[in-house]
Amino acid sequence: MVLGSLYLLWSAYGISGFEALSAPGAVPMVTTAVMLLCTGLIFLETLRKSKITAEKLERDILPMPVIVTILAITGYALALKPLGFLPTSFLFLTGLIRYLAKYSLARSALLALLMVAGIYLLFRIVFTVLMPPGIVPEAEVIAWVKSLFVARGN
């Protein structure tokens, strides 16, 4: 993890160097520097610990919820481009909420719908961040919603 963090810090530095606090690489450099610091501290703490432990891999390090979450994130990453942000995020959140919180399917879907709608409104509408469109005709939906608020010349 330390070596990976060091590589990511070097990559972040390659974006724009130390030009300015508002430079494109500033946030990635700060983030990866914090990551490097944390992984370094964890590495040092690990070296100080005893080699003999009662920890079990499946119980303490990789319990089933962690494995399921990793698989869900992998599935999300693979489905994002073909399906797009909206359906992929909805399915991802519905599945994980159902599994981790053990809510009913209806409650999980409603929570996922509210979260995706909030994220979409904030990032797509307010900050105008482009999301992978996929199978949802996003441009047509936005145009239709905008047309509802346009004064008609009757």
Score class of each variant (00 low, 15 high):
N154C: 13
S147W: 11
E55V: 08
T74N: 05
T88I: 09
I52A: 14
T94F: 04
P82K: 13
L44S: 09
P87N: 10
T94L: 09
L130C: 08
L78W: 14
L91D: 04
F90K: 01
T39G: 07
I70G: 10
L78R: 05
E55Y: 13
L100C: 10
N154W: 15
I42S: 07
F85H: 02
F90H: 03
A117C: 11
L8H: 06
P82Q: 13
I42N: 10
L130A: 12
F149T: 05
P133S: 08
A23C: 06
R48W: 11
A109D: 10
I15A: 01
L37G: 08
I97K: 02
K56I: 12
V136E: 02
A20S: 14
I73D: 03
S89I: 05
L44F: 14
S16D: 15
V129T: 02
V141K: 03
M115E: 03
Y120V: 03
W10Y: 15
K56H: 15
A101Q: 14
A77Q: 04
I142E: 04
Y103E: 12
A12C: 09
A106I: 10
L93M: 12
G25D: 02
A72H: 09
G14F: 07
Y13W: 11
G25T: 01
G118F: 11
A79S: 09
S89H: 03
V126M: 00
M35H: 05
E45Y: 08
K81T: 12
K102Y: 10
E138S: 11
F123Q: 01
S147Q: 15
Y103L: 12
E140D: 15
V141F: 08
V129A: 00
K81R: 14
E140T: 11
A101I: 07
G84H: 08
F18M: 05
F149K: 01
F43L: 14
L86E: 00
L36S: 04
E138C: 07
A77I: 09
L113N: 04
G153R: 13
P87C: 08
F127G: 00
M115Y: 10
A151I: 13
Y13Q: 05
T94I: 06
A12P: 04
T88D: 01
M64G: 03
L3A: 12
K56L: 13
R124S: 03
L62M: 11
P28F: 07
Y99F: 14
S22I: 03
E55K: 09
L62S: 08
S22D: 04
L21K: 02
V129K: 00
L148S: 05
F123T: 02
A12N: 02
Y76W: 09
F92R: 00
Y99K: 01
L71V: 15
A72L: 12
Y76F: 15
V30S: 01
V2W: 02
G118E: 12
S108R: 02
L6Q: 03
